[in-house]
Design a protein around this nucleic acid. Structure first.
Length: 768
DNA sequence: CAGGCTGCTATTTTT
DNA sequence: TAGCAGCCTG
């Protein structure tokens, strides 16, 4: 094996070879963070400092975990199977499966995805006659997840008003309901694990002693619960415990809205008395002008741990900025620019078009489509989220755990089998009365609905019996058939795609069985066994069920349970890749972690980016700035930014100022590609750019020609940019009245919206 | 129970 | 603008 450490720069080398102590690695964008993480694991194992079983490595996404495993197997000639490398949720699932009894969970507990969780909450609200105007299900869902993410059970949540008090009650009821059904939500996976480790000392000490090295990726994205879980595992302040190796970038913290707490970085530094703070500032991705822009922009944030990226690459090309007159024209410009990039030899998949919010993609997609440029939009429906797939999964869930009410309700009458609302309500009443699941309540309802419900139960039981001896893929096949799903979609006009998706589940199951190494032929054993062979379940001296590092989930779970976990925890790919070499369209958030030769950041307008609602949040604009920082640092060679004077949003035309972020970029690194384009006349909705000419990327120094303007007279126009002595730069949004008493409504961005008398106000036309 | 109608809402997203 | 959730009707 080659030397793992060659070609590392001094900082990377230092990080990789740190002694077993807590360490914080501040890893800038494109600084080789994943490399450091994986190389450190490989180095620790190769030098014999730790066995594979002594390592835990945590990521946020399955993609990142997979990436880590792939790179690791390329570096080390050992099997990565059974190593504790995965997402927080994946590892907690594994932990809870192993210790399900201690965690007070049924062995076949199932995982609710957000969709299931929401529908469960809706049911709960209905069952308790809660006014869903006052308590929208979404709010309660947020409330519950938020509490759990902070490690708070209902009895620990402080309520300050009657509404909150009621929410706390509902939170409690929700947890009880989950417990009855044998299901856990995402946050519960973590909270259960945390609580179990906290209350069970031998168990805790076992894992603390085992994991000598805990490595965490994207540490800036951890929430409070995740940090506390890590603290517990690392044995913070306790006798045992390994070293926590945290890698993160506070400048790329863009998930505060879902509970991430950047403060965990400084808390970690303080609480673990981190002496090893290493900054990876050498960037291997972007050219100089791009990096300068990122650095100067992010310098506007206070509360940074402090970091400045540098590169050995030259300045490269300037950052090109384009001002469009409308969103349509912005898209048109985009296309011209992309065409010339492609003509110059760029490959489409190396070009990304970024936007702040999904709604912005529509106009761009239209234009790309019209121009016959192939593209892929990130973030579509995931495979396991599709309705038909969820239906099939629900049947499988019922076979594995019939008390899952969400699954029950999803398919009890799908395909329709004459079980209507009334039967369900009767059943729900019975279930409520005895506090049991719907499935268990079926024998308690009589009459016609009782018998149709009874046959549904028989259907599920029959499918379970029939598939007992079958391997997972065959089991899936049988269920698709027996459930009537295939027949149902076969009779539907648009059913072909759905059937194809269902068929795909068989191959997904095949793939899963192979990937996860479920025994060929022999059904996996249910539950840990004291008489286990090497690589299977073992007991430690405290009688705690513990698994050897070589024992992956199959030992603890049936293939079906494992497959269902997989379906919840890995929603699958979003959308088949349309065309091999396609332009990449995505939000800035989903671009995190990716890189492209050329990047377009579009819609850089006040209100959009930074988004208007960010100004209402604490440190909201700072987070938007970090988002912009992420966007900029995606680009390797060429970066474009664009904004427009006029944009259609929610069916209304809006006039926004250019983003404040432009003022925070280094002028020498920029190149303004267009003169300030004259606004269109009010009411002239036809494309003003019909006869416009555009600059091309191929001819760097040409400035875009001004759009032909059919101006007929003086006076102010809507959309025009103005400068006011006191309020600064603004955009005319509306004009009322005429002649001497015309008044203009002007959007001054940060200074707000003002209505000014045009004959009085001292306004200057702003032209570039 | 399907299909149509109205009304509402509208960052960002992973697990 | 557009997508969807919830309601009503045939």
């Amino acid at each position: 094996m080659q030397n793992l450490l060659h070609n590392l720069n001094p900082e990377q080398l230092a990080a990789v070879t740190l002694p077993q102590q807590s360490a914080l690695i501040l890893a800038g964008a494109g600084s080789g963070k994943t490399r450091v993480l994986t190389t450190r694991i490989a180095w620790l194992i190769q030098t014999g400092q730790v066995s594979p079983a002594g390592i835990m490595a945590v990521t946020f996404t399955n993609k990142a975990a997979k990436e880590m495993l792939t790179r690791l197997s390329a570096m080390l000639p050992i099997s990565t199977r059974g190593m504790w490398i995965g997402t927080f949720h994946g590892l907690c699932n594994r932990f809870l499966r192993t210790h399900y009894r201690d965690a007070a969970l049924p062995q076949a507990f199932q995982i609710l995805d957000s969709q299931d969780q929401l529908s469960m909450i809706k049911r709960l609200l209905k069952a308790n006659n809660v006014d869903d105007e006052k308590y929208p299900a979404k709010n309660l869902q947020y409330f519950i997840n938020n509490a759990k993410d902070q490690g708070l059970r209902a009895n620990k949540v402080e309520a300050y008003d009657p509404i909150e008090r009621r929410m706390v009650e509902l939170y409690e009821l929700y947890d009880q309901q989950c417990q009855r059904e044998g299901v856990v939500d995402f946050a519960e996976l973590l909270l259960r694990s945390f609580e179990l480790l906290q209350r069970n000392q031998p168990l805790r000490e076992h894992y603390q002693a085992r994991f000598k090295h805990i490595l965490v990726d994207e540490f800036q994205d951890t929430n409070d619960l995740q940090y506390n879980l890590l603290k517990l595992l690392a044995g913070h302040g306790e006798q045992f415990g390994g070293a926590l190796f945290a890698v993160g970038d506070d400048d790329q913290s863009i998930y505060a809205f879902r509970g991430a707490n950047v403060g965990n970085m400084s808390a970690f530094e303080r609480e673990f008395r981190v002496e090893n703070l290493i900054k990876l500032e050498q960037n291997y991705r972007s050219h100089g002008h791009i990096l300068d822009s990122a650095n100067q922009l992010i310098a506007n944030n206070s509360k940074r741990l402090g970091k400045n990226l540098r590169t050995d690459a030259g300045h490269g090309e300037p950052v090109r900025i384009y001002e469009a007159s409308s969103d349509l024209e912005e898209a048109q410009w985009l296309i011209e620019e992309i065409k010339s990039l492609i003509a110059d030899g760029a490959s489409r998949s190396e070009i990304a078009i970024l936007y702040r919010s999904n709604a912005q993609s529509r106009v761009i997609e239209h234009a790309l489509f019209a121009a016959a440029l192939p593209y892929t939009v990130y973030g579509g429906q995931r495979y396991f989220q599709r309705a038909e797939v969820k239906h099939a999964i629900a049947y499988l869930q019922l076979m594995d755990n019939p008390h899952n009410d969400s699954a029950f309700l999803r398919v009890v009458n799908f395909p329709t089998r004459g079980i209507g609302m009334r039967s369900i309500e009767t059943l729900q009443a019975a279930a409520e009365q005895y506090r049991i699941s719907l499935y268990a309540a079926v024998p308690y309802v009589s009459g016609k609905s009782g018998s149709s419900l009874g046959s549904f139960v028989k259907l599920v039981e029959g499918a379970r019996f029939e598939t007992q001896q079958l391997a997972l893929p065959e089991m899936v096949r049988v269920v698709l058939e027996a459930s009537g799903l295939l027949t149902h979609y076969g009779n539907e006009k648009e059913g072909a795609d759905r059937i194809e998706n269902l068929e795909q589940m068989v191959s997904a199951a095949t793939h899963f069985v192979q990937e996860e190494g479920f025994g060929q032929g022999a059904p996996a054993h249910m539950g840990p066994r004291a008489d286990a062979q090497a690589g299977e379940a073992i007991l430690n001296q405290d009688g705690i069920e513990v698994f050897d590092a070589d024992a992956p989930l199959p030992t603890v779970m049936s293939p079906l349970s494992a497959f269902l976990s997989h379906a919840s925890l890995e929603a699958g790919d979003a959308q088949a890749q349309a065309g091999q070499d396609a332009l990449q369209l995505m939000t800035v958030h989903s671009a995190k972690g990716l890189e492209f030769d050329a990047v377009f950041i579009t819609g850089l307008e006040e209100g959009l980016f930074p988004h208007e609602s960010s100004s209402r949040e604490l440190d909201g604009v700072d987070e938007e700035r970090r988002l912009m920082y992420v966007a900029i640092t995606r680009a390797k060679k060429r970066l474009y930014m664009s904004f427009t004077q006029q944009r259609m949003l929610h069916g209304q035309t809006r006039y926004n100022m250019k983003s404040r972020f432009f003022d925070e970029l280094p002028e020498p690194a920029l190149k303004w590609m267009s003169p300030r384009v004259q606004a269109q006349w009010f009411g002239n909705k036809k494309n003003a750019w019909d006869d416009a000419k555009f600059s091309s990327a191929g001819s760097d120094n040409k400035i875009a020609q001004q759009i032909t303007q059919k101006q007929t007279g003086p006076g102010w126009r809507i959309g025009e940019s103005v400068e006011h002595a006191k309020f600064g730069e603004g955009v005319i949004v509306n004009i009322e009245g005429g002649g001497g008493n015309a008044r203009a409504q002007i959007n001054f961005g940060r200074a707000g919206m003002k209505v000014l008398d045009l004959s009085v106000a001292k306004l200057e036309r702003l032209a570039r």
